[in-house]
Write a protein that binds this DNA or RNA. Structure first.
Length: 264
DNA sequence: CTGTATGATTGTCG
DNA sequence: CGACAATCATACAG
């Protein structure tokens, strides 16, 4: 009977489902551009539907065969009842035997269906097996945060949630990403120099926005500038050799911490 | 097909 | 529980 519960939980033996797909569609719509996990999820559900159909048709077949066989035996017994007395008890016993036989066959069917579902799950729901890269936009956002907090790339829980929302991934994925990024950055800083410079420049531009706004607020009237709408022409200096010489041993001390609390 | 990039998992430590 | 390190398994580019 555990099998029944399992199949029910997997939606194999339950009623036809339409709500699940609606929820998935809603999630996909909410996430916007990225159809990363929803595509494979729909693939998974398609396979599950297939399994369910097979299961149902087989089950029905067995049911029918059982009924046919039962009536057949009943007819035989009725035939015999003309030559010898047949007690209702005997009939009942026969029917019981037949039903037990068929139900054991059904059990086998359930078990193999169960196995199929398990295999399907391990194949499709193990994200490690079916890895998808994040969208370009998501890595953009994550990298932006990482390099603008390079001296202390440890987003708070709140920041992680924010990033997760912006990237339409989960908080765990954000944590994973930062874990991987930190270790890999530390392991080979040279390989990330280019990227670091790139994102440093990028965030410098946004920082320049803030500075420009502040300056304007103060008094200076720059010629080209009304409010926050205009892009300040690249006045960012970009040291080629060493843009990030921050000691990347984040671990024990946080001496490089206070100076850039740039979180507007 | 081969090498690298990358997201996720596992085990260890504090 | 979170960070780190090693590792796995796949994606993707050449």
């Amino acid at each position: 009977m555990r099998l029944d519960n399992m199949l029910l939980a997997e939606g194999v033996s339950g009623p036809e489902k339409g709500g699940g797909s609606a929820a998935a569609a809603a999630a996909a719509a909410a996430s916007g551009g990225s159809s990363d996990n929803s595509i494979e999820h729909s693939d998974y559900r398609a396979k599950l539907t297939q399994i369910r159909q097979i299961y149902h048709t087989e089950l029905e077949k067995y049911e029918q065969a059982c009924n046919e066989f039962t009536t057949h035996v009943m007819n035989l017994l009725r035939e015999q009842s003309r030559t010898r007395p047949i007690s209702p008890k005997e009939i009942e016993r026969m029917v019981g035997i037949i039903h037990r036989k068929f139900s054991s066959i059904q059990m086998q069917l359930k078990q193999s269906t169960c196995e199929a579902v398990m295999i399907l799950r391990s194949r499709f729901l193990d994200a490690r097996r079916k890895r998808r890269n994040f969208s370009k936009q998501a890595t953009e956002i994550l990298n932006e945060y990482f390099y603008s907090h390079l001296s202390n790339p440890y987003p708070s829980e709140e920041a992680k949630e924010e990033l997760a929302k912006k990237c339409s991934i989960t908080v765990s994925q954000v944590s994973n990403w930062f874990g991987n990024k930190r270790i890999r950055y530390k392991k080979n800083i040279g390989k990330f120099q280019e990227e670091a410079n790139l994102y440093a420049a990028k965030t410098a531009v946004t920082a320049a926005h803030a500075v420009a706004a502040a300056v304007q607020n103060n008094q200076t009237n720059s010629p080209t500038t009304p409010n926050s709408g205009t892009y300040p022409a690249r006045a960012i200096k970009h040291p080629e050799g060493q843009s990030v010489k921050e000691d990347p041993r984040w671990r024990p001390s946080e001496f490089g911490r206070a100076e850039e609390a740039a979180a507007p």
